[in-house]
Design a binder for these strands. Sequence first.
DNA 1: CCTGGCAATATTTTCGAAAATCTTTATTTA
DNA 2: TAAATAAAGATTTTCGAAAATATTGCCAGG
Lengths: 226, 226
Amino acid sequence: MTLAEQAYQQVRWDIISGALPPNQPLRLEQLKQRYGVGFSPIREALNRLQSDRLVVNVALRGFTVAPISIAEMWDAIETRCLIEGDALRRSIEKGDDAWEAHVVAAYHALMLKAKSVSTLPRPVSEADLRALEERHHAFHRALIAGCQSQWLLDFADKLYVETERYRFPNLRDSSPLPDRDIGNEHQVLMTTVLARDADTATQLLQTHYRNTGRILADLIGPLTAV
Amino acid sequence: MTLAEQAYQQVRWDIISGALPPNQPLRLEQLKQRYGVGFSPIREALNRLQSDRLVVNVALRGFTVAPISIAEMWDAIETRCLIEGDALRRSIEKGDDAWEAHVVAAYHALMLKAKSVSTLPRPVSEADLRALEERHHAFHRALIAGCQSQWLLDFADKLYVETERYRFPNLRDSSPLPDRDIGNEHQVLMTTVLARDADTATQLLQTHYRNTGRILADLIGPLTAV
DNA sequence: CCTGGCAATATTTTCGAAAATCTTTATTTA
DNA sequence: TAAATAAAGATTTTCGAAAATATTGCCAGG
C-alpha cells in the first residue's frame, strides 16, 4: 500500500471519529508531522477526501475539515434512504445464495463483536470501537450488495461515511438508550430481508435510519444551538 | 485557478470527449508534456478523476482511462433515473420563483446555442460542441436545482458526466436521428415541470434518458461486439 | 524450444526546496 | 484616530530530482 493510501485512511478515520473536529484547519506542515509522511501523500489524501466531502478546500487557502450541521445530516440520511431503499429492493429481488450467505455472515460477525465490546470496561478503546464500526458498515453493505449496481453501492458507501460523522462521536459519549435495542432492529431487518419481503424490509431500513437521525438531532441540536 | 484545477478540467474533458479513449494508459511523463505542467498538478487531477470514476488506478502501476461498457452505461442511466427522478419531484414541490426563472433561462440558452450550432457547417468545432454540451448540462441541472439536497445534486452531476461519455462521442459521429426531436422533448419536459405536474415530468425525464440509452446501446453494441 | 532468473529500463511514488500567493503586522498619511 | 500601503512572515502550490517499484529483454539451463 502506498503512503498516500495510508494517509487517506488515517485522516479519514480521524475525521469520522472526531479527532479532527469539523471546521478544523488542516495545515500541511502539521499533518506532515502527525502522519510522518511528506507533502505529496498528504495532498493526495486531502484531494481524495475532498471528493468524499469530508474536507473542503479553497484554492491557495488550504484545507479544512468539512463542517457538519443538522440540516446536512438530514440531507445525508434522506438521500441514504432513497439510495439504500432502492438498492435493498433490488438485492432482495436479484440476490443469489452467495449474497444471502454474506448477509448472514456479516450479521453474525457484527453480533459477536457487539457482544464482546459490551462486556468490556468503559471507556472502550479506540481500536475496539473502530473494529465494531467496521463490522457495522460491513453488515449494512452486505444487505445491499446484491443490487448489481456499482453506482448505488458507491453512493451508499459515501453516505454511510458521512452519516457516521454524526453517529460515531455520540456512540462514545452517550450510554446506549434503554428504549432502543439496535441488535434487535438489525436481526428483524435481516430476517425480513432473508424472507424476501422487500416492502417491509425497505420500511424497516428507512425507519432505522430516521430514528437514528431523530436521536442524534436531539443530542447534537442543543450543543450547536449554544 | 491553480494548475491542478486546470489540469483536472482539461483531462476530464478529454476523457468525456473521447480524445483520451477508454482503457488508455495515462503515463505521467506524457501527460506532463501534453498539458504543460509538472507532476504534482497532474497527479492531483488524476486523483480527483479517480473519485469521479473517470480513471482507474492500480497502486504503483499507474492510471488508465476508465473502461466503458453497455452494462455500465445502463447502471449509470438507471441510477440517474432514480436520483434525478426524486430530485425533480422535490424541485417541483419545493422550487420557488427563482428556481423557475433559472429553468426558463437555462432552456432558452440551450435552445439558442442548439439553433446556432445547427446552422454551422460540418464538422462542428470542438469548442462549439463543448459550449452546447455545457448548456445542455446546465439545463438538466437547473431542472433539479430546487430539490434542496446537495447530495442529490452531487450524485446527479457525477452521473451526468458518466453518461456523457457514452452520448458525446456519438453526437459527433452520427447525424441527428430523424425520428427524434430532442429540442421538442426538452420543451415538453420544461412545460410539464413549470406546470408542477411531478408524476408526468418524472416519467418524461426517465423516458428521455432510457430512450437515449437504447439508441446509444444500438450504436455502441455492434462496435464492441467485434 | 521453452522456462526461470537476472540485469537493464521504464514508470510511479515520494521528498524537500523554490516559487507563488495569502495573511499579518508595522508604518505612513489624511 | 482611521484608512491605506508596504514589508515580513506563514502557507500553499509547483517543480525536478531521488527512491521505490514494476516491466522488459536477455541469457543460461533444462
